[in-house]
Structure formats: C-alpha cells, structure tokens
Nucleic acid binder design. Structure first.
Lengths: 233, 233
DNA sequence: TAGATTGTTAATCGATTAACAATC
DNA sequence: TAGATTGTTAATCGATTAACAATC
C-alpha cells in the first residue's frame, strides 16, 4: 500500500504564497464598492492567470457561483480565515536599527491582520526610546525582556532586524520563548528546529536576482541592435 | 518536430533564486580563510540539500574537483559572474519614507555588488535632505530629475518605496527612462511590459504566510497535547 | 590503489495550464 | 432557454531527490 503524498485537505505551498495577494486585492475591490467579481478580472488585478486563480481557490472550497463570479466580501473573509488573520496576530520586532524602526512605524499592519506587541534592542542607548506609529507609540525594551513579553502577551511571530552576527542568538531566544514563526531580515541562514518556520527577506538577494535579469536583457538588447544593424547593412 | 522547452544554456528560475545565497555564504567562508569546500558542508551552511546544490551549480558549468570539492574563491567569482555582479550595479531609490531612508542608509550594499546612484522623493519638504550611509551621503532629489539621472549615469535597477498610490506612476517613469528591472516594496501589483522584470517585497505578505503556518502549528500543538492527555488518562 | 566527492542520470514529485462539463 | 463563469480534469511542464558512475 502506498501512502498519499500529501494530507488530503492540505493546501499547496505555492497556493499559500499567493493567498495574501488575493486577499489584499479583494480587500481593495471591497472598499471600491465592488460586490461581485469574476476570476478573469480578479486574476488580472493580481497578476496571475484565471486558471491559476480558480485552481488556487478550489483548494479552499467552492466559494464562487457559476455564471456569476465570486462575492467579494465573502471570499475575502474565507481567505483571511484560511490564512489565520481573522483576528489580529501579535508580532515582536528585535533590532531597532534603520530597518527595525521603519517596520515599527509602518502604519499598514493593522489593516492586514497584525499588531506590534513589543520592540527590542540589545543596545542600552536605544532602550527607552519611543517610536511613533500613527496614534500609537512603542517603547524600545531590552532583549532580556523578550521571553517575559512573549509568555505574558499573545505573540505569534518574531521579526529579526538585527545585524547578521546577532540574528542566530535572537532566533534561539525567540524559539526558547515559544515562537515557531520567524521573519528574518538579517543576511544569514538561521539554524532552527524543523517545526519552526522561518521566512527570509534579504534585500541584496532580491537585487542580485534582478541583476541577473538586467544582465540578460542587456545582452538581448545588444543582440537586437546587432540584428537591426545587420539588416541595415 | 518539437521545440525544446527551454533554451539549451538557460538556467532554471529556482536555481537563480538560490545563487545569491550560495554567493553570500561562499563569500563568508572566503573571509574566514576557507579555501576549499565540499558540497555537503556548503549545502548545510546554505540550508539546502547537497544534491540540490550540486545540481544548481552544474547548470553554471563544472567548477568542482571530484574527490576534493570546490575552490571557494573561484566558485564565488563564477556565481558573481553568472549573476552579473562582478562589477557594481547602480540603483535608484524613489520614496524617502521610513523604509526608503532605511535602504538608503544600508551599508552592506557595496559588498554585495550595488551602489546607490540617486534617491528621490515627490515631497518638496524632503527634497534637499541628505542621508548618511557610512562614508558617503546622498541628497534627496525631486522625482522629476529621475529620467535625467537614469540617462546620464549607469543605472541598472529601480527601487520603489513609495506609498501604494504613487507606485504605478513611478514605475512608468522608471520604464520610460529605460529601466527594465524594478524592486517594488509598495503593496500593489504593478502593470508593466513583459520585458520588464519586477520583484516584489511585501512585508504583510510574508507575515500572512507565517500566520498560516502559525495557525497550523497551534492546532498541531493542541492535537499533541490532546494525545498526551489521552495517554495519561 | 583506496577513499572521497563531483556531475549526471532517471525517477518522483509538485505546479501550471488549457479545455470543458457542470451549473448558475 | 441562452449566455456566462465556475470547479475539475488531464496533460504538460519544471523542480527535487537519490543513487551512482566518473574521476580526482
């Protein structure tokens, strides 16, 4: 007997990665007053093909109406439910350099299902400073207080914006405190137990991928130019 | 006759996305004085399997020595060459809010193959301000000057850190000025011609993907707890 | 030669796509 | 009923993996 490759109800990783896009685009159609939308229009707004969109949504259930389309608010809610953002999830940010401060003062979190529970730094010079975010303001706490904050408040996700050298140490601290979801901005590969999910954003990685494309388009352009010149001659 | 699906020498997208990781990890082995490394150790440090690493590298050529491993500096150079970062590539950043300022003052660009050519904002209040980045400092220019800077200097990549409302407009401006590689931090899907490559970083998207994982691990944990309790009873 | 490690093969797995039956 | 659009199927495509022959 062969076991199935995936749990029956499981949703493909590639689909999960696109759900936040669908969610945001649907929400913006919602505020524009659109109540019903067809896969073709929604897909175009999300930058994917209608087939892919419908396939993705089919993994969550069948929320559309044939011949009509999808109810915008109903579908928005179903995706939010699948992602686990129907109630706001708490985050902590460790590392109050330029990037950490930029994130802590980012005002669009609330609307996407997140709220900041605490911000931390190792540097005593920074501890006690406050960062204003719209109506709210947060005070920088010493990293030593991270475990207490995580165990006493409802924290779901840890964000690391420290230099590369301290990132592993902070990750260990977060995991010890019970966090299993980490967003890492430090340019280093974290070593974590397998039940911990780490997502990584590295600006230089994104730029290098673009550099590859840019280099290719340069040579393509030269090729085109050469072809044009060849025709002229 | 059937055409091949991909150009013969073409490198898979999944491989390209991993090359920057290999490059950074190799560079750090290099500064640590390691001269030769086996796929097993390099793969572990990069968080991938040795098979995947060797397969990825095999698309670039055969740069290793059987029975020995890879020469660190030689492989580092070959990957840099493939990515197109053997010479530093110029970037412009538009939108000098918190995130834009954080990027403009990020000191690790130089070591990864990039330098800032110009920073821009629409807001007249911000124009003329300077942002310090290590030894250098940059002055915020009005967006109107973007085309001139792109055409007069050697700019390869445009970075958008504006609010969502202005992002499309700025993208159009960049494309008109001749840029074909854009890194977009605004939470909006850009509409661009197909020869333009856009990479998108959306913090809330990353967090929502983690929220999905976090939600799942919650229910898994409950399941485990329940199992433990059942055993005790 | 013996041991080590690469580069490649072939099998498996997962994601994408186009087409269309189902159904509003 | 006729037109529209979903949800699903089956085919294709691309990525991953394990195993091993090649070779240092």
């Amino acid at each position: 007997m062969t076991l199935p490759n995936r749990k029956p109800g499981a949703i493909p990783a590639a689909t999960i990665a696109r759900l936040p896009i669908y969610h945001r685009v649907l929400a913006s159609f919602g505020v524009s007053g659109v109540t019903t939308i067809a896969s073709e229009e929604l897909a175009a707004a999300c930058g994917v093909s209608p087939a892919k969109l419908r396939k993705d949504l089919s993994h969550l259930g069948s929320f559309g109406t044939r011949g009509v389309g999808y109810n915008v608010s109903y579908l928005t809610f179903q995706i939010a439910r699948e992602l686990g953002v129907t109630k706001s999830r708490g985050i902590v940010i460790v590392g109050m350099g330029n990037l950490g401060r930029a994130l802590a003062s980012y005002r669009a979190f609330g609307g996407r299902g997140f709220h900041i529970v605490g911000i931390f730094d190792r540097d005593h010079e920074l501890v006690g400073n406050t960062i204003v975010c719209g109506q709210e303001s947060f005070t920088v706490k010493p990293v030593g207080e991270l475990p207490a904050v995580v165990s006493q408040s409802d924290v779901n996700i840890g964000v690391i914006t420290t230099p590369a050298e301290s990132a592993q140490e902070i990750a260990d601290l977060m995991i010890q405190a019970g966090l299993v979801s980490i967003l890492n901005f430090a340019p280093v590969v974290l070593n974590v137990p397998e039940q911990v999910e780490v997502r990584k954003v590295d600006l230089a990685v994104e730029l290098q991928i673009l550099a590859f494309h840019d280099q290719r388009s340069d040579s393509d352009e030269n090729l085109q130019e050469q072809l044009v010149r060849a025709e002229i001659a």
